[in-house]
Amino acid sequence: MTNTDFDFLAGTWDSVQRRLVKVLAGQDEWYEFDATLDCQVLFDGTGVLDVLRAPERGYEGVALRLFSPDEQVWRIWWASKNTGGVLDNPVVGRFEGAVGTFECDDVWEGTPIRVRYRWSQTDTEHPRWEQAFSTDEGATWEVNWTADFTRRA
């Protein structure tokens, strides 16, 4: 089965990444860094693999996205040098138009949380990704990481 949800992401991108200095602390201090993203769409669109690199910060991470035709959902796993060779719990969800929302339960520094990834502006030249955490089962969210992308020529 063919799926085109993540076709917009195929290729090489420059991005500006912004992260909260302290997550779930009720503060609004951010740091910013540049990164690149190299993305391959596989399996007729039902598999997506990308590598995010921010050499100036010594940061490298990998995302694996797999679409389940039976369930009509995506599962997205994340791993980085900081995760010790372990994939994070997958966020699960789907696209509604140009916005994809994916969620899961997890734990952040001992606190049970709900994790949300959201892709937006996927029908533009500058797609956006954000990560948010909720400590109240999704009633409120704290965005703690954003990424704005520009395709490399």
Score class of each variant (00 low, 15 high):
Lys22Glu: 15
Val62Asn: 03
Val115Lys: 06
Asp88Thr: 14
Thr124Pro: 12
Thr4Phe: 11
Asp123Leu: 00
Thr12Lys: 10
Asp34Thr: 10
Asn89Gln: 12
Ser120Asn: 09
Thr135Ile: 13
Glu142Phe: 00
Trp119Lys: 00
Pro112Ala: 08
Val23Glu: 12
Asp70Val: 13
Asp148Trp: 02
Val16Tyr: 04
Leu66Asn: 05
Arg19Gly: 02
Glu125Asn: 11
Phe43Cys: 09
Ser15Ala: 13
Asp38His: 03
Ala25Gln: 15
Ser120Ile: 07
Trp129Tyr: 06
Val21Ile: 14
Asp136Phe: 04
Arg128Leu: 08
Phe6Glu: 03
Arg118Phe: 08
Ala35Gly: 11
Arg19Ala: 08
Lys22Gln: 15
Asp7Ile: 09
Phe102Gln: 01
Ala139Met: 04
Asp14Lys: 07
Ala25Arg: 15
Met1Pro: 11
Leu42Val: 09
Thr124Met: 10
Val21Leu: 15
Leu66Tyr: 06
Gly26Trp: 14
Val23Ser: 05
Thr46Ser: 11
Leu52Arg: 01
Arg65Trp: 10
Leu87Phe: 15
Asp148Phe: 05
Arg116Asp: 03
Arg53His: 07
Arg114Gln: 13
His126Leu: 07
Asn89Ile: 09
Asp106Lys: 02
Val23Gln: 11
Ala79Asp: 01
Glu130Gly: 03
Thr101Asp: 05
Asp136Ser: 03
Glu29Ala: 15
Leu24Asn: 13
His126Glu: 14
Trp141Glu: 06
Thr2Leu: 13
Asn3Phe: 08
Phe43His: 09
Ala79Asn: 01
Arg94Met: 10
Leu37Met: 13
Thr4His: 15
Asp88Arg: 05
Val92Pro: 05
Val99Trp: 06
Glu96Met: 04
Arg114Asp: 08
Ser134Asn: 06
Gly138Asp: 07
Gly93Gln: 06
Thr140Gly: 00
